[in-house]
Amino acid sequence: MTIKRIEPGKRMSEAVIHGNTVYLAGQVATNFDAGITEQVQQVLAAIDDVLAKAGTNKSNVLSMQVILNNIADFAAMNAVYDAWIDPANPPARATIEARLADPRLKVEMIAVAALPN
């Protein structure tokens, strides 16, 4: 089975396709100083972009890991996330609180998706 890497770099790829599955790297906001709502919007837009490059979309997301630097942002994150997901195809999801690479980052998301047949 072949492996395809999307936007490979020295340390990581934005996504890796193996078989019919796409594994996305953790996505973070481009504006580290934005509030939680804007950061979640930016992260989900980045996920949409990487999924499109892989040939799939949010309807095919199998699982999502959400990492918040402050679990108090859970409701605000969900308000944006709930408007983004395909309600007919919600992925399995876990949300945790953890320190992120930069203290200004409020959220990071990691997705795994299927390629359409």
Score class of each variant (00 low, 15 high):
78 N>G: 07
116 P>M: 12
82 D>N: 14
74 F>S: 10
58 K>Y: 07
88 A>Q: 14
43 V>M: 03
117 N>C: 08
61 V>P: 06
36 I>H: 02
70 N>S: 12
62 L>I: 12
19 G>D: 08
42 Q>C: 06
74 F>Y: 13
28 V>Y: 00
77 M>N: 06
64 M>S: 10
61 V>C: 10
15 A>M: 11
33 D>W: 00
111 A>V: 03
45 A>S: 09
105 L>A: 13
80 V>W: 05
97 E>D: 12
17 I>D: 01
55 G>A: 05
6 I>Y: 01
92 A>S: 15
1 M>C: 13
44 L>V: 07
20 N>M: 12
5 R>P: 00
53 K>V: 00
9 G>R: 07
37 T>F: 04
4 K>S: 08
92 A>Y: 10
89 N>Q: 13
79 A>K: 10
16 V>G: 06
54 A>N: 02
70 N>A: 14
15 A>N: 07
12 M>I: 09
32 F>C: 04
40 V>G: 05
59 S>I: 03
109 M>C: 14
4 K>E: 07
57 N>V: 02
95 T>Q: 13
73 D>W: 00
76 A>E: 15
102 D>I: 03
82 D>R: 08
73 D>T: 02
68 L>I: 09
25 A>T: 04
16 V>L: 09
85 I>Y: 10
58 K>Q: 15
55 G>C: 03
48 D>R: 05
48 D>H: 07
79 A>F: 04
108 E>A: 15
100 L>C: 11
66 V>H: 10
82 D>M: 12
28 V>M: 09
95 T>W: 09
16 V>K: 01
74 F>K: 12
97 E>W: 05
68 L>H: 02
109 M>H: 08
112 V>Y: 02
5 R>T: 07
54 A>C: 15
9 G>H: 07
19 G>A: 06
41 Q>L: 03
95 T>M: 15
59 S>A: 10
99 R>S: 14
117 N>F: 06
24 L>Q: 01
10 K>H: 11
41 Q>R: 08
99 R>G: 13
20 N>D: 15
62 L>P: 05
7 E>C: 11
41 Q>M: 08
54 A>P: 00
64 M>Q: 07
36 I>L: 09
19 G>Q: 03
57 N>T: 04
21 T>D: 06
113 A>Y: 04
117 N>A: 14
25 A>R: 01
17 I>V: 15
53 K>E: 00
55 G>Q: 02
93 R>W: 06
49 D>P: 00
59 S>K: 03
53 K>H: 03
87 P>K: 07
102 D>C: 11
74 F>D: 14
46 A>C: 03
90 P>M: 06
112 V>D: 00
114 A>D: 14
39 Q>E: 09
102 D>H: 10
92 A>D: 15
38 E>R: 11
5 R>E: 11
69 N>S: 15
18 H>R: 08
68 L>Y: 02
71 I>R: 06
102 D>A: 13
99 R>V: 13
42 Q>F: 01
114 A>Q: 13
74 F>A: 13
77 M>P: 06
71 I>V: 08
12 M>H: 12
9 G>W: 02
77 M>Y: 06
78 N>W: 03
79 A>T: 14
82 D>W: 04
105 L>W: 01
24 L>M: 09
9 G>L: 08
10 K>S: 14
3 I>C: 12
75 A>T: 09
73 D>C: 02
81 Y>E: 12
16 V>S: 08
